[in-house]
């Protein structure tokens, strides 16, 4: 009997997951369809883009610099045992450009912008502002959701370009100042090793993560219910779901880009 209860519980959970996945997919598809159909809300896009790119810049920059520094330090410990200090530069650039740049920027932006987005849309939902849009000749999916999805998709790659540069700079700083490696050799090793493919794959990941962050923020905010508590729950869900999707998506995309 207990086994049956468990099975029923698992079934219910699976059903709930499928239903939510379906709802998110429909929501995302509708949002995207509004990106390409007029009217376009340039102001809303600009606002969302600034929120994503400009105001997230400091936190993403800091994360990137320190990750580059730490990787230089850690990999030096390993490689110096085999007299392979030259590999530090290539390890730093590859891990930053391929993985850490997009993933860390994604997680930081999910915590910062995704949460704020869910809170804003959630508040608009529970105070009837979203309903009010509908009575004022404005489709809320078009006005609120589409610009944010587009902004997330375009802004994250931009942030990641900055993160890549600063991550490499962080590694360079530690390697040359603290570890005493030759600056010119370090730069040579960096630029000789990294390929266009590495950079492009990282930026593509960033675009996907940016879309996912905006999608989770909008979906949970847009569908929040029940006052302040509901908005709080929506914010948490948006951040948690976006983070999980970034980490899982990172694996899937890495397979896609580099498995062959």
């Amino acid at each position: 009997m207990i086994v049956l209860d468990w099975l029923a519980a698992i079934g219910r959970a699976a059903f709930a997951i499928c239903r939510t996945t379906g709802a998110v997919a429909l929501f995302g598809a509708e949002g995207v369809s509004h990106i390409v159909r007029p009217p376009y809300y340039g102001r809303m896009f600009l606002r969302a883009f600034l929120e994503f790119a400009y105001f997230s810049l400091p936190v993403v920059a800091l994360t990137a610099v320190f990750s580059g520094m730490v990787i230089a330090l850690q990999s030096y410990t390993g490689f110096s045992r085999f007299n392979a200090e030259g590999a530090v530069a290539s390890i730093v650039v590859l891990s930053v450009v391929r993985e850490l740049g997009p993933v860390l920027a994604g997680l930081m932006v999910a915590g910062r912008v995704g949460a704020a987005m869910a809170a804003e849309l959630g508040t608009m939902r529970v105070t009837d502002q979203i309903d009010a849009l509908g009575t004022l000749s404005t489709n809320p999916m078009k006005y609120l959701v589409a610009p944010r999805l587009l902004a997330g998709t375009l802004a994250l790659p931009l942030l990641v370009v900055v993160a890549d540069i600063l991550g490499v700079a962080g590694g360079y700083l530690v390697a040359t100042v603290k570890l005493g490696l030759s600056p010119s050799a370090y730069l040579n090793n960096t630029f000789n090793f990294v390929t266009t493919n590495d950079v492009v794959s990282g930026l593509a990941k960033a675009a996907v993560f940016g879309f996912l962050i905006a999608l989770m923020g909008c979906f949970h905010g847009y569908n929040s219910k029940g006052g302040a508590q509901g908005v709080g729950a929506a914010t948490t869900s948006a951040v948690v779901m976006a983070s999980i999707m970034i980490l899982a998506g990172d694996y899937v995309l890495t397979e896609l880009f580099f498995a062959h």
Binding site: D128, Q129, D131, T135, S137
Partner: peptide, 14 residues
């Protein structure tokens, strides 16, 4: 809906 105006219970101002 363009013919309809609505004053919401809590205002619902943007």
């Amino acid at each position: 809906n363009r013919q309809i105006g609505m004053l919401f219970q809590a205002g619902a101002l943007f």
